[in-house]
């Protein structure tokens, strides 16, 4: 597979990232953050959920160490994705290429590469094409969002908070509708996470840890009733 194949797989991710990154840029401006900080986060961190959260933390004057710690908790979930992805890489791929690909592992690029790698190994060219086209869409969308923030009506701005979740739904539910057992697992995990977040966090809201724990326990339960061919179907 070539870089071009990676780019082709990235198109739906890019189309999802651009409105999302515009939303991020707009919200960052609305919170009064400097343009350079908003863009720098997209260039260096490249992790949507944590960047959205960082906007409110920076704007709220939260201590740097606290911002860094929260970012770590939210983004530690990528460790599970990278572990899963590591099985799909060509065995001979070098450490440097792996390190470069790792920078672009996100919920979305990971979901796409899981689908592509279900019955074959993935090479570096493909993954670099996929991950970095998505990356450029994210950074470009951020810049567009900053420029367009002044002309967007406030009511449209308020509606963009849903964008991230709409993208997650678009990635998850097609598989769930293909297999009854996957759908059951999705529902169980969702309910489980609602309960954990409600009872085990101080404000009843989910955090990085509750997301990690719920998805680990959900996947463990899934081992017992989901068949291999349902996962890849």
């Amino acid at each position: 597979m070539s870089i071009k194949d990676g780019f082709k797989s990235a198109v739906p991710v890019m189309m999802g990232y651009i409105p999302l990154a515009i939303a991020y840029g707009v919200l960052g401006k609305a919170a009064g953050l400097p343009d350079a900080l908003i863009v720098l986060l997209s260039i260096m961190v490249f992790a949507g959920a944590s960047q959205f959260l960082a906007i409110s933390l920076f704007a709220g004057g939260v201590l740097p160490l606290e911002i860094i710690f929260t970012t770590f908790i939210i983004n530690s979930r990528h460790m599970i994705m990278s572990t899963s992805l590591s099985r799909k890489l060509e065995d001979h791929m070098g450490i440097f290429k792996r390190g470069v690909i790792a920078f672009g592992v996100t919920d979305e690029t990971f979901s796409v590469s899981s689908v592509q790698g279900k019955d074959r190994k993935l090479n570096a060219r493909y993954l670099i094409g996929l991950n970095f086209s998505s990356y450029f869409a994210w950074v470009a969308g951020t810049v567009i969002g900053i420029f367009f923030s002044s002309i967007l009506p406030a009511s449209l701005e308020a509606s963009m908070g849903i964008a991230l979740y709409a993208l997650f739904i678009a990635l998850l539910f097609p598989s769930a509708f293909r297999s009854k057992h996957i759908m059951i697992l999705v529902v169980i995990t969702g309910i489980f996470h609602i309960l954990i977040a409600f009872y085990f966090t101080s404000n009843g809201k989910p955090t990085g840890w509750t997301i990690v724990i719920s998805s680990l326990i959900g996947a463990f339960i899934g081992i017992f009733f989901i068949e291999e061919d349902e996962i890849h179907g």
Binding site: M81, D107, S111, G161, L164, Y165, L172, G190, G218
Partner: peptide
């Protein structure tokens, strides 16, 4: 198998319950 199930459960946990607070109004969400 466990690792293959992670994308499904992770996405589910990312969506629920955070989606309900994402718009400032639970009905529009």
């Amino acid at each position: 198998k466990f690792l293959s199930l992670i994308p499904f459960t992770m996405l589910s946990a990312l969506i629920f319950p955070s989606i309900f607070g994402s718009t400032g109004n639970v009905y529009s969400a």
